[in-house]
Design a binder for these strands. Structure first.
Lengths: 109, 109
DNA sequence: TTGATAGTTCACCACTTGGTGAAGTATTGT
DNA sequence: ACAATACTTCACCAAGTGGTGAACTATCAA
């Protein structure tokens, strides 16, 4: 698996479905951080965080680089743009029809 | 669980992480559909689709109503807007910094 | 060199997922 | 009444998830 390979929506959405991982992403908006810098405020253990980072990296959302004994983590651009684009289509759609079902059922008795 | 309760990002993203369920959502953009109308083009079995619909309903993405022996399914608005909003923040952020990590590591040798 | 620090890897656990086929329920058409 | 239709529910399975503690590796600092 190449580090910044285009990840599918499957793994991107799956990665974002975990609150700890979303917290990691939110933390990384402030700038790159090491594993312990990420783990401490989340009161997550390092083994657990290692797994979460693997998921985020597989999804292409996060890049990491080892510097000495520290591992720096930072956000990546592309995959989330795809996910956002996918959602944006539906957000636009829903702005128009808020209650498609009851409307449909009224029109088709 | 109330039918259109505001669902957390957890369940929304988890619901969208499955390709079959995203296909269901895409199909429902064309308008409401029954279970078999959803199942057939996806070549999914009805038991499997029943489970997927349960996930989509728990996430608040889809509403269903039973009419006789048919079950009509349609999209719902709110939860995906939250997910889209969450992602939009990051999309905007990533437009600015495409390679935060290498930038950071260069500035902090 | 010795010891602390930073992180990884391992085996293991309970739990959830997505799928199946078979059986069951309820509505509808003849 | 009977049979087909439209689903649902059930028990089950294989695979994956998130978490743990303990052991291991690698770097850095004294």
């Amino acid at each position: 698996m190449s580090p910044s390979a285009p990840a599918s929506l499957d793994v991107v959405f799956a990665a974002l479905s975990d609150p700890t991982r979303r917290a990691v992403v939110e933390r990384l908006r402030l700038g790159p951080a090491t594993m312990t810098e990420l783990a401490t405020p989340l009161s997550a253990t390092l083994p657990a965080l290692t797994k979460h980072l693997a998921v985020l990296e597989r999804a292409g959302l996060v890049t990491t680089a080892k510097r000495g004994r520290q591992r720096f983590c930072a956000l990546t651009a592309a995959p989330l743009r795809d996910a956002a684009a996918w959602l944006a289509e539906y957000a636009a759609y829903w702005d128009e029809r808020l209650d498609a079902l009851t409307g449909y059922l009224k029109e088709n008795p």
